[in-house]
């Protein structure tokens, strides 16, 4: 375990139990998942039982207890994207990358996820890779989009 790294994250907070979610978010952002040893440190410093950490980590969608891929693909399945074929994009991506939604490719390059709504409904269907948005992303555009990240 990288002690200075986790210490640096925790040092930004007062150490109250209400800091739990922001601390876990920082860990998720930096490590791409929530490593078990780091969570033990968090439990100790914030005086929060491991059971509460586990319940929070498994309740919210942004947290993962296993490492995620280098690039996070988020396909929007909001109402408009649903009507405009968002599901087909998920299937096309899944087929091309060889993963089911919620999973990571074997080479750890991509994690494929679906989200409730990305809030760019006028450009449905929408997908996001890391921080970049892709609007009007039909199935025919999928190969070109993922090529940029390969």
């Amino acid at each position: 375990m990288d002690q200075p790294r986790i210490d640096a994250i925790l040092s930004r907070y007062e150490g109250s139990s209400a800091d739990l979610i922001p601390v876990l978010q920082d860990i998720q952002d930096q490590y791409n998942y929530l490593p078990k040893d780091e969570l033990k440190v968090v439990a100790e410093r914030l005086h929060v039982p491991m059971t509460q950490i586990y319940s929070v980590a498994t309740f919210f969608k942004m947290f993962s207890l296993i490492p995620k891929g280098k690039h996070q693909i988020k396909v929007c399945l909001g109402t408009t994207c649903h009507l405009r074929g968002g599901v087909k994009i998920v299937e096309s991506l899944g087929h091309r990358l060889g993963v089911e939604p919620g999973y990571t490719t074997k080479d750890m390059k991509f994690t494929l996820e679906t989200v409730g709504c990305l809030g760019s409904c006028a450009q449905a269907p929408v997908m996001m890779i890391d921080d970049k948005y892709f609007g009007r992303a039909g199935v025919d555009k999928v190969p070109k989009i993922i090529k940029q990240f390969k």
Binding site: S17, A18, I21, P22, L24, V56, F60, K61
Partner: peptide
């Protein structure tokens, strides 16, 4: 600022409050 962590139910006010307090929504 309190960042959400991905849960639709947190738009419900009591769930949102629970999540700011560090609990599940």
């Amino acid at each position: 600022i309190s960042r959400g962590a991905g849960a639709f139910v947190c738009g419900e006010e009591t769930a949102l409050i629970a999540s700011i307090e560090g609990y599940i929504g």
